[in-house]
Design a protein around this nucleic acid. Sequence first.
DNA 1: AATGAATGAGCCTTCATTCAT
DNA 2: AATGAATGAAGGCTCATTCAT
Lengths: 233, 233, 233, 233
Amino acid sequence: MESHNGSTRATDPAHMTDAPSKTPATRRVPAQARARKTRELILEAAIQLLEKRGLRGFSTNRLAEASGFSVGTIYQYFGNKQDVLDALARHERDRRLARSTKTLTARAKESGAAGLSLRERARIVVQNELRAFDGRQRARKILFDLQWRSKQHRDMDRPLKIFADMLVAGQVADGEQADVHLGAIDAFVLTQAVAGVVRAALERDEHMLLLPEFEDSLVELIVNFLESRRRKA
Amino acid sequence: MESHNGSTRATDPAHMTDAPSKTPATRRVPAQARARKTRELILEAAIQLLEKRGLRGFSTNRLAEASGFSVGTIYQYFGNKQDVLDALARHERDRRLARSTKTLTARAKESGAAGLSLRERARIVVQNELRAFDGRQRARKILFDLQWRSKQHRDMDRPLKIFADMLVAGQVADGEQADVHLGAIDAFVLTQAVAGVVRAALERDEHMLLLPEFEDSLVELIVNFLESRRRKA
Amino acid sequence: MESHNGSTRATDPAHMTDAPSKTPATRRVPAQARARKTRELILEAAIQLLEKRGLRGFSTNRLAEASGFSVGTIYQYFGNKQDVLDALARHERDRRLARSTKTLTARAKESGAAGLSLRERARIVVQNELRAFDGRQRARKILFDLQWRSKQHRDMDRPLKIFADMLVAGQVADGEQADVHLGAIDAFVLTQAVAGVVRAALERDEHMLLLPEFEDSLVELIVNFLESRRRKA
Amino acid sequence: MESHNGSTRATDPAHMTDAPSKTPATRRVPAQARARKTRELILEAAIQLLEKRGLRGFSTNRLAEASGFSVGTIYQYFGNKQDVLDALARHERDRRLARSTKTLTARAKESGAAGLSLRERARIVVQNELRAFDGRQRARKILFDLQWRSKQHRDMDRPLKIFADMLVAGQVADGEQADVHLGAIDAFVLTQAVAGVVRAALERDEHMLLLPEFEDSLVELIVNFLESRRRKA
DNA sequence: AATGAATGAGCCTTCATTCAT
DNA sequence: AATGAATGAAGGCTCATTCAT
């Protein structure tokens, strides 16, 4: 029924903009600013609510109360409850992706001409993923699930594919890695395997996420799979 | 030892007992038989309902209607709605595990003294897993999720560990595999990775499950991981 | 719809007999004995259940479970749930009355020719009443209420009247008390005033029941009222 | 922000506020007015329902139907069923207290410098109490009970203490009564004794309430108790 | 832009009672 | 005499959503 927000790229700074088409450019800037602010406030309250009460306790009425806005207002910004959750999920996914990308790039630069080995890159990504669940763990887990179950495959998968490619791709020629191009299915398998393990660990015991052996195990899962794919190609 | 779950009252201590052995001798047999039948009928109706209406449409009242029993009766057999779902989930998991185990054993026997290679065993398991979702896919997916999110880690994980061990263990000496003993964490990672991939595929597109490339990809994921672990050990 | 039990006098040893008319005298004594036993077991379980779960948690199904008999059996002995409660209430009332009567008589005997003063008698009764709620306080409070609200005025009031008279009546001539004969209304007022105070104290704070000042206050309430009535007469 | 009572959620702390003073100034007046009206309509329907169907027949669904609002609306104004009953009970208690206080003051004024004797004051209070149960007797009896059983001791007892003091306190010096200050326990005993008698009479036979002898008996109960307390002090 | 009163279908669960065995 | 499976009306309550203001 309403605005939403564009999907936006991870690194995109214009992130979450939902000014819809009707406001070409110059109409009532203060109102727009207020709207943006309102939207953000609602989302922030939403995350907190999710963290505190879980998905079951996350109701529009409760969100209204928690955000300080009325239900009506929330429906002004989001078509329905699901939309709020979707916006949240997208936001989390983007944050995670952006973080990995950034770290990967930064480390690659540091490492100079030699570039990072596959195993190094894998470890960076894994660490990033594992540490993403520090605060607001509950909310993140829920969103993680939601994302997964989401009907918006198309929308949600694209960034993951990009991400997988980035993991595989060497930044430079170092003899070792000539851009392995992962097939769609292999990318899917790799991506979801990692996600599945993390999800499960999150469910079972959050401490597991921080065990070195756990990290190692995941890295090996990734590296060995990728190497076998490269051999095949 | 299985099936059921707490009859009637949540506080019922006689919970989980399935073996009718304690009954002195022949008393109450007709009642017991009827009870068992009823329970089964309810569960069958439950699966169908889950398939047809999804988790959201799965209400106790609806289950009553669908099963042909009254709500009261359902509550005589299951402490609450969740118990029904749990019983269903357990049932599915056991079926899957049993099937893999059986196939594995059968094929090992066929293959004679040489035994099965790791890759062969992995493929058997994967195929089994992938084909488990023939009919009632929706219900199975839901139960799969439920199982995953279940608080009953202990209960749910044990069979998986056994299963992982069985996958790894060679039946006989064929030079290649001297019983790789998977550590707890590695077993967890492997198991959940596979589950994660299957779950995701189920969500995205059920057809994917039957693509040969998908199967291959999964097998490689497993085999390469296990081989790397063996090398390490 | 069934059995019930006779009202019986407090001191009546044949108390709680519910053998209905159909069994004149001699039929199947063992069966009768068993029936009596069963009935008692049910009532005992009922009190315990009431104590443990309160009136709200007191259901026929629960009673069946707690008593070790089936619901059907309970309905064999009591026409309906209310009947069980009524039997319990009567039982409690009788116990309390019997106790007061006994103590009063005993003390009167001890005190020799002089007899007990009104104040002494009042105190005995009050103490008895206050201490009646030692164990099973919860159950007793509930039954107390039930009794009060009971539709069976006729049945419930008679013993109270007798009791009031006994309180007022001196056992012997001691100059002081020439049998004050309480009018029906005065007896009602006195009786219910005491009951009301006890009930309220029970609700507010059980410890209050044991405070000496509380006991004193109640005794004064009674004594002063009775003396004023005597003056009037 | 106002009146109501715990709106919506049981955990709402802004419970019981009645003074509308805090509202900044003039905002939301129409909505507020409507809300107040709705609340009152619900309460009125509630009393009627209680009168007609008794406590057992008093269900939220029935109240919705009777009030002409939906269940949802009722839950917007009262946290749960008990809250409705509590509000009703409080309302009744306040009415009764207010009435006694008013009559007492008025009569004291009329009586001039001499003031009212203790017996006169007692009679006023008793009459007031007895006549409070004209219409809606059933509802009042139920609420009376509820009040009694209420967990909100603190809240419910305070007004009673004030009331007891007022009963005891002479308005002016008339030689007879120099402010007898009732101890907390004595006040409790007196108060609950009267309440107990009235309650019981209500239960047994409403006509009793109007018998002159009944009134006399109660007055004597009060007066004699208070005089004995005064002597003691 | 914002409000929030109102809705009502529907949810999960309880429990007194019956009756065939 | 005893059982206990089965019943189903009814209960309290939630919550996404609408719409007049």
